[in-house]
Design a protein around this nucleic acid. Sequence first.
DNA 1: GAGCTTGCTGCAAGAGGTTGCATTAGCATC
DNA 2: GATGCTAATGCAACCTCTTGCAGCAAGCTC
Lengths: 156, 156
Amino acid sequence: MTVQRVSRSSRSTAFKEVRSRLRSRGLRWTPQRRALIDVLSATDGHVTGAELVELCRDRDPETTPSTVYRTLEVLEEIGLVKHSHGRDGRQEFHIAPASEHGHAICENCGEVRELSEGDVAGLVGSLGKRGFAVDLSHLTVGGLCPRCGNSGVPLA
Amino acid sequence: MTVQRVSRSSRSTAFKEVRSRLRSRGLRWTPQRRALIDVLSATDGHVTGAELVELCRDRDPETTPSTVYRTLEVLEEIGLVKHSHGRDGRQEFHIAPASEHGHAICENCGEVRELSEGDVAGLVGSLGKRGFAVDLSHLTVGGLCPRCGNSGVPLA
DNA sequence: GAGCTTGCTGCAAGAGGTTGCATTAGCATC
DNA sequence: GATGCTAATGCAACCTCTTGCAGCAAGCTC
């Protein structure tokens, strides 16, 4: 439950931007959405849905999961966040980066690393030739990271 | 709930093999396991956990989910089945093939296609150089298949 | 065939996530 | 500021697994 601090100003800038993006689509700006965006802008890396619900509850104990998940859906639609699936298939969210990317997840320690364009170029090209348009944010590969792969007891 | 028919003989061959594989590890052969293997050997492609529970219930309405999921775990341990995660993060099982492979899942129609070694060679090599040992059965990529990508309304 | 060990089952409870529906409340308009 | 449209919320129920535990039974030994 470590939360990275960001400056007050960058946070409120994010608010205004999201608010106008919502409004331009006829969507509404509610306290619950504000809280979630606040939480999201203060977190780093990848967060699971359950963690976000938990963090929102820290701010407002009344928070209900369905609202959080529905808001995340909306935020993904307007391009603010992206979700991918962790090693156990659970959803993980992160603030949308400049470029889409895949993820490599260590099946032992759970560490997530982002894949570079070079890593996936072959796969994207190969599938592209067969007419399959790859969605990089939904490219997940499991395996063992260097630390876990080299140790004596890689898997439980 | 479509179930592919296979010959009686190939089915009972599978039984004997699994039974001995279990016994050699000190594991037991129970009616519930027999039922699940029966179901598995009669299905084609990828099945979700819930579907397997349902199919087992068709044979024995007493079937409980926990038994099915625990049996699937055991069968994966002895190498009979493999699981991967579908587009919504749900578990999908399939009878273990000769070689491990990744999956490409269409985010529109849900179709699953298997990735060839050539498709993933670049990614596996690239990650391998950095010390990450790829587990091919946990390589999943989302996107749009040729049918859905070319149609006028690719996504809902 | 009886006894014994211990792996397996079924139950119940719980976690994470989704969905339907009645109610509430943004916000545009007057 | 009052009104009305409708998006968003909160609740409850549900789905898909997962886990702990007590009791059952597979199958080894004698």
